[in-house]
Design a protein around this nucleic acid. Structure first.
Lengths: 146, 146
DNA sequence: TTCTATTTGCAAATCATTTGCAATAAGGGG
DNA sequence: CCCCTTATTGCAAATGATTTGCAAATAGAA
């Protein structure tokens, strides 16, 4: 369990969270949550849509909603396509990824640099409420042999 | 001068570098370099195009070329629009930015976390040739008063 | 200056994502 | 359990960044 602790929450927990936010529990939303629940790596909207039977626009709309209510987190690997991961109940989802430049394999990274750096940067420049986005890229073991 | 040291290279240096790569020195390419030279923050293709008199497609094509020959570096602030900065002669351009979530003001950040972290992550997961992308986001002094 | 391979401009194509709108479904109230 | 109001969906079309095909323009070598 050195890897990212993934919330193995069940569907009713998830729908309960939806309900808390006074949102309707619709078919597509449940399906999207199910898909995200069984993956522990970020998925693109298109990938999610591929495992579903609803409109792609609905997937985008639902993901945005779920992101606003902090049930999913959006990641950006710089390839022009957003990826989404399910968040646990009290999880701010702060973690990073190590992505293979060749095959796009993704490894979840729990570690991060010390908060010092962030605070120092914020202070030095007078910024408030500073967060960061950090992703690693490299060649995975398989792709090194090519 | 605590800020990112920006290469105040002149145009002939730049065209010389172009020439080294056996590329033609065309009007648009020189113009793009001139625009980038007088900015010390990353610009979008559209911003560059706004200060020029050539086709937007040419800007994109030139930027890609310049990126391939390591004369400009592409940055991604996660807003779906790439930004570009001029690189110095022997500069790998590795640095980061602090971006205001409100007004998009950009501050260049020279510091970075210790290379240890990156190496440890690479080793732990068997990845090679690991690099990273790191950007900070927050509220700049002006936008905090809102 | 001439010739040829590059490069440009323009328009159209892509790709991810968003949006307008009429049709449909969720969930509270009776 | 049915009805009604409102949120949500599907579909198609719009958007915005970026790329591409192709014929016309041009940089640089001969």
């Amino acid at each position: 369990m050195a890897t990212h602790t993934h919330p193995r929450q069940n569907l009713s927990d998830l729908t309960a969270r939806l309900r808390q936010h006074a949102q309707r529990i619709t078919g597509p939303r449940q399906l999207i949550l199910e898909v995200l629940r069984r993956e522990d790596h970020p998925l693109t909207a298109r990938q999610i849509h591929g495992q579903l039977d609803c409109d792609l626009a609905t997937v985008y709309r639902s993901l945005r909603l779920l992101e606003e209510m902090a049930m999913v987190k959006r990641f950006d690997f710089g390839d022009g396509t957003a990826r989404f991961e399910l968040l646990g109940q009290n999880d701010d989802g702060h973690h990073h990824h190590l992505v293979c430049r060749e095959c796009s394999t993704v490894v979840e990274i729990g570690e991060c640099f010390s908060g010092n750096l962030e605070q120092r940067i914020a202070r030095e420049h007078g910024f408030a409420d500073v967060s960061h986005r950090l992703e690693f890229f490299g060649l995975c073991p398989d792709c090194q042999t090519t």
